[in-house]
Design a protein around this nucleic acid. Structure first.
Lengths: 351, 351
DNA sequence: AGTATAAATGTGACCGGTCACAATAGCGCT
DNA sequence: AGCGCTATTGTGACCGGTCACATTTATACT
């Protein structure tokens, strides 16, 4: 099964009686083309149904019109296998694709392993094959310097989701620290002073920043930070259940828990139910991830809504600008939203 | 920002003192290469870190090592916008990518419009740009003959999700009719005889087949089909709410409802709550889509679990085989599963 | 008008692979 | 050794664009 080629640039050139280079100039919005010629060429392109072949463009030219989005294989697989979706992937796809389409770009998704060395090999392979104009790294790979070094070495623009260093990188992020603060203040405003924090992994920069915001907010409110109320999770349900169990089973227990992702929030929810605590009356709960599950569970949870689509969209924009020769590095911070739902509704017992 | 090229096939050829064609033969598992040479070349490829460039391969060669997956823009956008995820996309991504990776292929996702003419133009553009080896069409585009004709004309292999005609196409599907039957029998087994069916859209072949299975099962059980209990939905919450409202508000109401997708099932759930019907005691409910929301809502719903990942994986396999020159068309039916949850639990009032 | 300069257009090479076909090497057999 | 045949390897062209540079045409200015 061979895929034949349709109309080529030479067909268009012949049709308008110009050289292929002139047509190429029109295609790339190059300078020094007489308006009348530009119009004539565009008309011919339209009429003949000419569409430039991306592979050919990539050969001699420097652009491939491809943006590569990298996700973590284990994380994606776990979510998929467990039957909870990858809301994240969906939003990336939508935000990225919409932006790419505007500029005539395409998105390719790839999964790579968590192990830094394997990840490096896999990324090397795929960028050698595809030679994308830009690569989007998502956590935890945004923090892997082997990958960023590789991309720098290969002179491929790189966007990092969840980082905020900028420089030559297109860093897109949310104000994680601010979100940590906001969530904490939200709970304090509701009358809570015994607020625990169920952290994800210190390997994730985002986790660290959120936790930092939590600490800061407690200080701002004149509340002490209890280190035993900072739980060490791993984004998984099981581990979080153990921590929640420990916290909730005695008398000296938190009145509110902030969970670093939806799975850990669900773990708290289940544990609370098991030990007979009602939400929100006996325990308030906030999730840092606003997935369908979080919205639909009982009670629906208050959550931080990450602007994933906006971030990826911006990442694509930056990468495309960079591959057009512009200085596009820097930090773009997308605004988060705190969605208030029942899990932190005002409760009588506290007022 | 130009992406430089690394090691090329000529570098490898020079290294082993052979011609580039010989290296090419090794790469493509071509015949007539002396084993010792093959080994030497492979060693050099490994040592030099050579990875063939996909764009270059595509130029003179007939393969692009690209599989294109097409999804409907409106549907994806609606789901995304509404804050419910696209579980479907996630599974496609995972199933497809895993299969592609095995064969050195890559997946590109694209969204196209529902309108058949627009869809055709958009597909034409993207296949002209990318020249993929295969295209996966998902509902409702699997039923759009303009698209399949275009692909046939362009000699690009095509897989259709949710179709079962086969022939030159790689059709992957679930036994939709069987699922419709199974769901209906499940309800009858639970003692129901007043079973309504909230259909999606007659534009979707899958919807039609499921409905057919429902009718068949009722006949098999000696139950009459009530046409007024076959609701015309459009996969949307709002429309389904109206239908559910009509059904549930009187005395002559169904004791069980089958919904063609999760949104419509949620609509029934909400409507039931509003009119004071308990699930499953007063009304049983089954969803044809097993998304995270369906699993997490209250009560958790019995649902058909579509083997999306398996179907897409198989589609990729077929397309890759086809582009390798094999006769790969045909129908592949992936097994569905009925996941029994609380929404159809045995209820006292019926026993 | 005549020349300097800029604008517009054209030409050949080239990117990194694969194709078609040519050329050489190796083998079995008389 | 000589022959026929097959297995193995090599050569030049080529895919469809873009690059660098050459060439022609238009505009500006003395």
């Amino acid at each position: 099964m061979a895929s034949k080629q349709g109309v080529t640039i030479r067909d268009v050139a012949r049709d308008v009686g110009m050289s292929r280079q002139t047509v190429s100039r029109v295609l790339n919005n190059g300078p020094n083309v007489k308006p009348s010629v530009r119009d004539k060429v565009n008309e011919a392109i339209e009429r003949l149904g000419y569409v430039p072949n991306i592979s050919a463009r990539r050969m001699r030219g420097s652009r491939s019109y491809l943006i590569l989005a990298i996700n973590d294989r284990q994380r994606t697989y776990d979510n998929w296998r467990a039957g909870r979706g990858n809301d994240w992937v969906d939003q990336m796809l939508f935000g990225g694709m919409t932006e790419c389409e505007k500029h005539g770009y395409h998105m390719v998704f790839e999964l790579i392993d968590t192990d830094p060395t394997k990840a490096q090999d896999q990324l090397f392979k795929v960028i050698s094959e595809l030679r994308p104009d830009g690569v989007i790294l998502t956590p935890p790979h945004s923090d892997n310097t082997r990958l960023t070094d590789l991309l720098k070495d290969q002179e491929i623009a790189c966007a990092r989701v969840g980082r905020r260093d900028g420089g030559e990188f297109v860093d897109v992020c949310m104000d994680e620290r601010g979100a940590g603060q906001r969530v904490t203040h939200h709970l304090v405003d509701r009358g809570h002073s015994r607020i625990a924090y169920l952290a994800g992994s210190p390997d994730y920069g985002t986790s660290v920043m959120r936790l930092d915001g939590y600490r800061a907010a407690l200080s701002e409110c004149g509340l002490a930070v209890r280190e035993d109320w900072i739980g060490k999770g791993d984004f998984q349900f099981e581990t979080a259940s153990v921590v929640a169990q420990k916290w909730l089973h005695g008398v000296d227990r938190p009145s509110a828990i902030i969970a670093d992702n939806d799975q850990m929030a669900f773990a708290v929810l289940h544990t609370a139910e098991r030990v007979g605590l009602r939400i929100p009356e006996d325990l308030a709960l906030v999730s840092f991830e606003d997935t369908p599950g979080v919205r639909l569970c009982v009670p629906p949870m208050t959550a931080i809504r990450q602007p994933t689509a906006a971030m990826i969209s911006r990442a694509c924009e930056g990468l495309i600008a960079a591959s057009s020769g512009e200085e596009a590095g820097g930090v773009f911070e997308a605004p988060f939203e705190l969605i208030q739902r029942t899990s932190t509704a005002p409760s009588l017992s506290l007022s």
